[in-house]
Simulated assay, not measured.
Amino acid sequence: MTVADPRAWQAQSLLLDYPGDQLYGRLDLLTEVAAALEPAVGAPLLRFLDHVRATPPGELATDYVATFDHRKRCCLFLTYYAHGDTRKRGMALLSLKQTYAAEGLHLGDDELPDHLAVVLEFAASRPDSGRALLQRHRAGLELLRLALRDAGSPWAAVLDSISATLPPLGGDERAAVARLAAEGPPEEQVGLAPFAPPEYMPQPQGALR
Score class of each variant (00 low, 15 high):
Leu30Gln: 07
Arg87Pro: 00
Arg89Met: 02
Leu15Pro: 01
Leu23Thr: 05
Gly25His: 15
Asp21His: 13
Ser161Lys: 05
Val3Arg: 09
Gln98Ser: 03
Gly152Cys: 04
Gly130Tyr: 01
Leu14Ala: 14
Glu199Ile: 10
Ala101Val: 00
Pro6Cys: 02
Leu107Val: 04
Thr67Met: 09
Glu38Arg: 15
Arg53Cys: 03
Pro39Trp: 07
Ala123Leu: 01
Ala36Gln: 10
Ser13Asn: 00
Leu78Tyr: 10
Ala193Pro: 05
Ala61Trp: 03
Ala117Thr: 10
Leu16Pro: 09
Glu59Trp: 11
Thr99Glu: 00
Phe68Lys: 01
Ser153Leu: 05
Pro56Trp: 14
Leu169Met: 01
Leu60Pro: 01
Cys75Glu: 04
Ser95Phe: 10
Ala156Tyr: 06
Val65Cys: 06
Trp9Gly: 00
Ala151His: 07
Arg89Val: 00
Asp5Cys: 03
Tyr18Glu: 06
Gly104Tyr: 05
Gly108Met: 05
Thr79Trp: 13
Arg138Gly: 04
Asp50Cys: 02
Val52Thr: 11
Leu45Met: 13
Ala207Trp: 12
Leu16Ser: 13
Pro127Met: 00
Ala139Phe: 04
Gly25Arg: 15
Gly170His: 07
Ala66Glu: 15
Val118Pro: 00
Phe68Glu: 00
Asp128Arg: 09
Pro185Ala: 06
Met91Phe: 08
Leu148Val: 11
His70Glu: 14
Leu14Ile: 14
Gly58Phe: 07
Cys74Met: 15
Glu173Trp: 06
Thr99His: 01
Leu23His: 06
Met91Glu: 08
Glu111Ala: 10
Arg53Trp: 08
Gln10Val: 11
Glu38His: 14
Pro185Thr: 08
Leu169Tyr: 02
Arg26Trp: 02
Gly90Gln: 07
Asp63Arg: 11
Gln12Glu: 13
Pro168Asp: 12
Leu37Asp: 02
His137Ser: 11
Gly90Val: 01
Leu94Thr: 04
Gly206Asp: 11
His137Gly: 04
His137Asn: 13
Leu146Ile: 10
Ala66Ser: 14
Ala178Tyr: 12
Leu144Cys: 02
Ser13Cys: 01
Gly140Trp: 09
Gly206His: 11
Arg138Trp: 09
Ala147Thr: 07
Leu76Tyr: 05
Asp17Phe: 02
Asp63Glu: 13
Leu143Pro: 06
Trp155Arg: 00
Asp150Val: 06
Leu15Ile: 04
Met201Ile: 12
Ala207Pro: 12
Asp128Ser: 06
Glu121Asp: 14
Pro186Met: 15
Asp50Lys: 07
Arg179Met: 15
Leu134Asn: 04
Asp172Tyr: 06
Val119Trp: 03
Asp69His: 12
Gly184Ile: 08
Ala40Gln: 06
Gly58Gln: 09
Asp114Met: 03
Ala43Met: 00
